[in-house]
């Protein structure tokens, strides 16, 4: 299928990526090539086949409802580019 720069824009917005114009054109071309190649899969009739999201029949992996305190707030905050003693800081989110 044709991958337009508009489609690249659409997936870029969803991915929070903002490619410069010249990269966008190049990316559209590369994606078109890759996605075009993926259309090989249509040679295979899979209409009766259940999609396999998990490879092994593992199921019901559940933990007990018992509290464990991790404790380290400082350690969790310490990697944040902007934080104070209690929280992660971000630009204003609501009006």
């Amino acid at each position: 299928m044709k991958i337009t720069t508009e489609l690249v824009d659409y997936v870029s917005v969803l991915s929070r990526l903002k490619l410069p114009e010249e990269e966008k054109v190049k990316m559209a071309g590369e994606l078109e090539q890759i996605i075009g190649y993926m259309d090989i899969l249509n040679r295979l009739d899979t209409s009766d086949i259940e999609p396999m999201s998990h490879t092994f029949p593992v199921k019901n992996v559940l933990r007990e409802d018992v509290v464990e305190d991790f404790g380290g707030r400082a350690a969790l905050l310490s990697n944040a580019p902007a934080h104070d003693d209690t929280a992660f800081l971000v630009p204003k989110t609501v009006d």
């Binding site: 489609l7 690249v8 659409y10 997936v11 870029s12 969803l14 991915s15 990526l17 990316m27 994606l31 890759i34 996605i35 993926m38 899969l41 249509n42 295979l44 899979t46 086949i49 259940e50 999609p51 396999m52 999201s53 490879t55």
Partner: peptide
């Protein structure tokens, strides 16, 4: 990331992502 976003996006999920999960079973 862009490729992955594309194959999951509305209108393309079935043709690409879901199809790939079916072929994975094959």
């Amino acid at each position: 990331i862009l490729l992955g976003t594309f194959v999951l996006s509305t209108g393309y999920y079935d043709a690409y992502y879901n199809k790939a999960l079916q072929v994975k079973a094959v």
